[in-house]
Structures are given as structure tokens and as C-alpha cells.
Design a protein around this nucleic acid. Structure first.
Length: 450
DNA sequence: ATCGGCTCGCGCAA
DNA sequence: TGCGCGAAGCCGAT
């Protein structure tokens, strides 16, 4: 019997089965619990009576990640290593070019099989394909991030949430199941290994230190679980009412842990359904958690240009092109945006929340991105600025959610055309009057020191 | 306060 | 081929 649904598993090569330890190359899903890729690796190791190890390769630079994000990653990973050690599973942390490091590790330790997790970002795809080609052992990818596996739910770029939603719904009963436990691994890894020292690694890395570490949220699976419990106990019932008000803490706040895979989306969904199975609030939350998040993976997986203008739909490219030379009422450089130096106190407040808190409220993210489009010299420049700022300061930067959200705001991705106006063309417009109708804009500005 | 128009294209019914 | 409708809206008329 295999613990993991076969539809979650994607072979990345066709190598023959071999003896030797099984390695889980951990990348996106940095947790010891509720992790289908790790569970599948353990299953293979048990069948072969082989040791099981986890490998994490820290790339020297990753899409402009800063100390803020490396700190969250490494401190969370140290907790994951402790949890794994209790199960007789070592976690090895290597540094360097990931595919090369993995292949050396496989050769040195006579590894027989590699399992890895799923990530639709281009750089991860390149690493995975390179490793699967050159390591000389069977190589499996297990989608441990999506509740319904991304490759299985749809084989094309979905037009919008409304086309993906019914496909997810049909399959949810199959996939939204309880996780089996990881068990203490009976076959001990032959060589000694060292505990992970996040502070030492952080001091040693050549990092962009301009975005500092934050005192909150705390990294790691334990802190994620505490936030999940408090959100379900205190925030879920009111979620439908409060989620679009940036002045109150109405969103779940789970995205940093979800992004680093320290918390499984499937765990969040299971606990939500268990607590509040059908209400407008839980429906709205599950739609955000499942449909929109998995739509972002679908977008990045099927659209190689997810972070470039060419990734926008044809009607959006056409209309943005027609308004390329429209006069901009305000025009800012990346530095002005970065330092929250625009004329608009609401925009500046949103940017300051990103700088100081490492996050921005979901509703304001749309306004923030659309104004960057409105006040930049070109759509290309606007897209690059928004992605850079999000990737650099947000704890959930470099996530498919971020790329899809910005492409929605600036490029009509998963959206429709609306009334034509300067600069935007037919891209949906937003202004601060709309915000004022919805929440206490001035209170929000005061809170962020406007 | 509420309503319709703006505008594109998918997916389904016919 | 026609029709309903969509990830968060805006605007002007009533």
C-alpha cells in the first residue's frame, strides 16, 4: 500500500530502480509534518529497507532574496531539522548551485532514489530538470504544496478562478484527506551529521541586508500552528466581514509560513473544514486558500512569462500598448517608490507596511500595484518595480501568488476588460475613492505614520 | 443607496 | 451561434 495518491507523483526521468538510501530534496515544502513528498520518500525507503535523508541546498542568491527572508527560511529549517532528527532522519544543508550539489551528494552517499517537491517557478524547474537529467538515479516530484496537484487538476493555463474552481471542487473530496504520520525511521543513516546553525550561516552568507529580519512573525512550524489555531478560534467566523478592511487584522496572516512551506495549505483547509464546515466566512476563506492560491500555481506553471509583460493576455497587451505614450500625471523612479516617496499618503502607507512589517494587506496590494502602473514610465518598468519591491521586502515574496497578483493588477490576468482610460487602457482601474468607500483610509494612513 | 454600462472571451447549451 | 458571467471597480444617473 502506498500512502501517497499516485496522481500527486510525477516521475522526472525514467531511470531504473537502484539500491541505496532515499533522499528527499526539500525545496518549497520546508516542513517535517504534513508533507506528501517526505511521506512518499519514507514509503520508498521502507519498501527498500533503506535509510532516509533530507537534503536542502541553499543557493548563493535567489531572486533577490534578502536577510529578512533567508532568516525566516533558515530559522524555520532549523526547527524542521530538529523534528526530523527525532524521527532518525538527518537534514543535510549544502550551499552552492543546487543541481550540482545534489548530484555530488547522490554520488558520495550512493543514493538510490531522489524525491523532490513541486514548484512552478522557472528557476526551480531548471534545477529540477538539470538534476533529474544528470544525477543518474530515479527522480520523482511530489506536489506537496497544492491540495489538488497542479499538474493533475488542469493541463492548460486557466482563464480565471471561475474555470479552475469547478475542476478543483470535483477533485477536492479525493485529495483533501488527513495526512498519515511520519514514523521514526527504522534504517539509520550510515554517516554522522551536524545540527543546523542558522545564525552561523546567516553571518557567513553574502546577503542583501537592506531588509532586516522581523521580530514578528516567528519562523517555523510551531509558530505557524499557533497562528493557525488563533485564527481559527478568533478570526475565522468574522473573516467574511473583516477580510477586506486593512485597518483590522481580519486576514489569516498565514502567508509567510505557507510560502516557505513551514505550514501545509492542506492542514489549514482540514482545520477550517473541521471547525466551520459551511458558512460564508469559511467559504470565502477556503476560496482564497485553495482556488486563488492554486490558480497562481497554474498561472506560473503554464505561463513561462509569468513575471514579464508577454505573460499578459493579448487584449491586455494591446490596450496597454495603445496607451503606452499617454501622459502620466505623476512619474516616479524605483527609488521613490521604494522609499514611500509619492504624493499619495495611502500608497505611501501601504509601501511602509511592506517595508516595516514584511507584508501588505491583500486588498491594498491591488491598489498598490495599479498605482505603480499608473505612475511609471512604461508597463515594463512598472512590472519590474512591483516585482522587485514585493520580492525584496515581503516575507511571501518570490511566490506564485505575488506574480499572479501583480499580473492581475497590471495585466488583466484572470480578469476582464473594463472601461477605457488613460495609461490603464481597459485594465481595471482603482482609486482612493473606492478605498474610502470600503475602509477608514485616514486611520490606516495614521497607523503607518503618514 | 442602487443600478446599468463599460468590455473580453471561456464554456456550455442549443 | 448565442448567452451568462466572471478575483475585489468606476462613474454618472436616478
Amino acid at each position: 500500500m502506498t500512502a501517497v495518491d499516485i496522481r500527486r507523483i510525477h516521475p522526472l526521468n525514467r531511470r531504473e530502480e537502484q539500491d541505496g538510501p532515499v533522499v528527499y530534496w526539500m525545496s518549497r515544502d520546508q516542513r517535517a509534518v504534513d508533507n506528501w513528498a517526505l511521506l512518499h520518500a519514507q514509503q520508498l525507503a521502507l519498501e527498500r529497507r533503506a535509510p532516509l535523508g533530507v537534503l536542502f541546498v541553499l543557493a548563493p542568491s535567489f531572486l533577490g532574496a534578502t536577510l529578512r527572508q533567508y532568516g525566516f527560511l533558515l530559522r524555520g529549517l532549523a526547527e524542521t531539522a530538529q523534528r526530523l532528527a527525532k524521527m532518525n532522519i538527518p537534514l543535510f544543508l549544502l550551499r552552492g548551485e543546487p543541481a550540482g550539489q545534489l548530484c555530488s551528494f547522490v554520488a558520495q552517499n550512493r543514493v538510490g532514489t531522489v524525491v523532490t517537491d513541486f514548484d512552478p517557478l522557472r528557476v526551480k524547474r531548471v534545477w529540477r530538470e538539470e538534476a533529474a537529467r544528470s544525477c543518474g538515479v530515479p527522480f520523482f516530484e511530489v506536489d506537496s504544496h497544492n491540495i489538488v496537484p497542479c499538474r493533475f487538476v488542469s493541463d492548460k493555463p486557466e482563464y480565471g478562478a471561475h474555470t479552475l474552481r469547478p475542476k478543483l471542487r470535483r477533485l477536492l473530496a479525493d485529495f483533501l484527506t488527513e495526512f498519515p504520520p511520519l514514523i521514526p525511521h527504522p534504517h539509520v543513516w550510515p554517516a554522522p551529521f551536524q545540527p543546523l546553525d542558522p545564525q552561523g550561516i546567516l553571518s557567513d552568507l553574502h546577503l542583501d541586508r537592506s531588509a532586516s529580519e522581523l521580530s514578528y512573525p516567528l519562523p517555523g512550524t510551531r509558530a505557524a500552528g499557533e497562528r493557525l489555531r488563533s485564527f481559527i478560534a478568533q478570526g475565522l467566523e468574522e473573516y467574511g466581514l473583516r477580510r477586506n478592511d486593512p485597518c483590522c487584522d481580519g486576514q489569516s496572516g498565514l502567508s509567510p509560513w505557507l510560502h516557505f512551506g513551514q505550514l501545509a495549505p492542506q492542514r489549514v483547509a482540514l482545520e477550517t473544514v473541521r471547525t466551520l464546515s459551511s458558512s460564508p466566512s469559511s467559504e470565502a476563506f477556503l476560496d482564497e486558500l485553495i482556488v486563488r492560491r492554486e490558480l497562481s500555481d497554474n498561472f506560473c506553471h503554464h505561463n513561462r512569462a509569468y513575471d514579464r509583460l508577454e505573460g499578459f493576455p493579448a487584449w491586455a497587451l494591446k490596450t496597454l500598448g495603445e496607451h503606452r505614450h499617454d501622459r502620466r500625471e505623476y512619474l516616479y523612479t524605483q527609488e521613490q517608490f521604494e522609499h514611500a516617496g509619492t504624493h499619495d499618503p495611502l500608497w505611501n502607507a501601504a509601501q511602509r507596511s511592506l517595508l516595516l512589517d514584511g507584508k501588505m494587506h491583500g486588498y491594498l496590494r491591488m491598489y498598490w500595484a495599479k498605482k505603480i502602473l499608473e505612475w511609471s514610465a512604461s508597463p515594463e518598468e512598472a512590472l519590474a518595480v512591483a516585482i522587485r519591491l514585493n520580492d525584496r521586502y515581503s516575507l511571501d515574496g518570490r511566490d506564485p501568488n505575488g506574480y499572479a497578483g501583480i499580473a492581475w493588477s497590471m495585466g488583466g490576468v484572470h480578469d476582464r476588460a473594463w472601461g477605457e482610460r488613460p495609461v490603464f487602457g481597459k485594465i481595471r482601474y482603482m482609486n482612493d475613492r473606492g478605498c474610502r468607500r470600503k475602509f477608514a483610509v485616514d486611520a490606516y494612513i495614521r497607523r503607518w505614520g503618514g
